[in-house]
């Protein structure tokens, strides 16, 4: 049968356990290689770096979510999912505190409404 059984991990079909997932997704992975921009200020660079980290961990969470949808009994995947979800939550809180809202409800109490502030670029304008 092409599809792996519910109790085995597709990342390493030799092993009946899910341990290889942890190796394939590292919390401390380096951000994706990017061009150095001489004009960018250090602050812009650190914002970009943090956003890339959020995208990286966010993608791992999305992908593990799909894996767990069809493998709800895999304890290793669930453990990694909850660990990365919590890492993602704190990375997002850090980003919001430093650079502004990711969701409308992240906006602070200072007027004008930060969600539509011209200082916070939309993702296709960054």
């Amino acid at each position: 049968m092409f599809y792996p059984k519910a109790d085995c991990c597709p990342f390493n079909t030799d092993e009946p356990t899910c341990t290889p997932i942890e190796e394939s997704v590292s919390v401390n992975a380096q951000p994706m290689a990017r061009k150095e921009n001489m004009e960018s200020s250090p602050d812009v660079n650190s914002q970009k770096e943090l956003l890339e980290k959020i995208q990286e961990i966010g993608f791992a969470v999305v992908d593990l979510n799909l894996f767990l949808d069809t493998h709800p009994d895999c304890t290793q995947a669930l453990e990694l999912y909850t660990k990365l979800s919590s890492t993602l939550k704190s990375l997002k809180a850090d980003y919001v505190a430093k650079y502004g809202p990711l969701c409308a409800t992240d906006s602070d109490k200072n007027s004008p409404f930060a969600w539509v502030d011209d200082g916070h670029k939309w993702p296709w304008d960054i």
């Binding site: 409308a104 539509v116 939309w122």
Partner: peptide, 16 residues
């Protein structure tokens, strides 16, 4: 439509 709106307010409104 939101991609080509001229300011953050209109981009935000169309997104929301």
């Amino acid at each position: 439509q939101r991609f080509t709106m001229p300011d953050s307010v209109t981009k935000g409104l169309l997104t929301d």
